[in-house]
Amino acid sequence: MQTRREFIKTAGAGLAVTTVPDFFNISATMTQHHVAVQLYTLRDDLEKDFNGTLKRLAALGIKNVETAFWPKTVSVETAAAALKAHGFKVTSSHADIPTKENIQKLADAAKAYGTNRLIWHGWPEDKRYSSLEGTKELAKIYNESSKLAKDHGLRFGLHNHWWEYRNHVGGKLVYEVLNEELESDIFFETDVYWVKVAGHNPADILKKLKNRVQLIHIKDGPAVFNEKLIKDEPDPMSPVGQGALDVPSIIEACSDKVEWLVIELDKSAIDVYEALKQSKQYLSKFKSVSLT
């Protein structure tokens, strides 16, 4: 299993419930949250058998994906064509921070995928998140990156890990400073697992951030902090609904702005395709969740 650091470097930079609680009976008139899969989940398989992996994923009934980085032997053009051939819609793309030097390349990739959402994946931790001054400096960079993205027809967002919800700077948590300093059109893709790892109730965070959150990384598992995380060695994760996260409360806390629930397993405790299948089946029980 490749670590996140190795993957980025290589790339070039119980299921059923016995009763149905009220959480599952959300009115069908509410905004639908659609399901996608972050392809980082299948990084090892994509490295070994690119098209075979996409075929297996499509066979699970998955229709939407979020891209990360591809094996170095696979170009963006090849990947985009393969995704289209297997019937996938690209919801968003994880990428590096937009700069004047790379923005055209990022825009071309987004166009090939057919998405306008560009998300800074956020790995590894930037040490500037250890101070208020550094955090504000990063917020300024993100605001500049968002303007570059907008100038190229893209929308820019941020994906979190645990440190944004664990590091205190200037009497506040990093995510609070970012929420205050960032331009309103920069969206969050909130990874609820890492929020839980940092010691928070994800539902409370989603309610606090309100419309800033437009996508969620939905994953499950033990969700406890340990020093191995710093080395990118997370605990094995479980199918959604079988770990420590209160998924019903998370989904109930989603605002109408949350369009996508993106399933991700950094490391799977069981066969990864079975974990994706069970996660999809679990999420299908919520009336506010659409698999299309």
Rank of each mutant, 00 (worst) to 15 (best):
P124S: 09
T19K: 01
V213N: 02
F88M: 09
K257T: 11
L39Y: 03
D204I: 04
I103K: 03
W163V: 04
Y142W: 15
E144G: 06
T41K: 04
N160D: 14
A80R: 02
G87P: 07
N116V: 06
L57Y: 02
A11M: 13
S238G: 00
E252N: 13
N167V: 09
G221T: 14
D22W: 13
S238K: 14
E133Y: 13
I186S: 02
V65G: 00
P248E: 07
Q32N: 08
T19E: 08
E181N: 02
L15D: 05
A28K: 15
E137V: 10
Y193P: 04
N179Y: 11
K100D: 15
I103L: 10
I62R: 01
W70D: 00
D232M: 08
G122D: 08
I216A: 02
R117S: 11
Y175A: 03
D232N: 14
H34V: 02
K100C: 06
G221S: 12
E183Q: 11
A139K: 05
F23H: 09
K84H: 08
Q38H: 13
T67K: 00
G114T: 09
K196S: 15
D191C: 05
V76S: 05
S184D: 15
S146E: 14
D232P: 03
A82V: 15
K9Q: 13
D96E: 15
K280M: 15
F156V: 10
W194H: 05
K150R: 13
W123L: 12
Y40K: 03
N116D: 15
V195D: 04
F50T: 04
T41C: 05
Y165D: 02
E189T: 12
H33E: 05
A13E: 12
T29R: 14
K208L: 11
K208G: 00
A244K: 15
R155C: 02
I216R: 00
M1V: 10
K280Y: 11
N102S: 03
G52E: 13
P239A: 15
A110M: 07
L209N: 00
L276Y: 00
T73K: 14
K140G: 01
I186H: 02
I230L: 12
E144W: 05
R166W: 12
E180C: 09
K105N: 08
N51K: 14
H33T: 10
L215A: 07
L46S: 00
W123E: 06
S146T: 11
V197T: 04
E125D: 13
N51R: 15
R5A: 14
H152L: 01
M1W: 06
V35Q: 01
W123A: 09
V240F: 03
I263H: 01
P71H: 03
K219I: 06
V37H: 01
L215S: 08
Y129Q: 11
K257I: 00
D151T: 01
T41L: 07
K228Y: 13
F225H: 10
Q214P: 00
A223Q: 09
F69Q: 01
R4N: 00
P124Q: 10
Y129N: 03
N143E: 08
A112C: 06
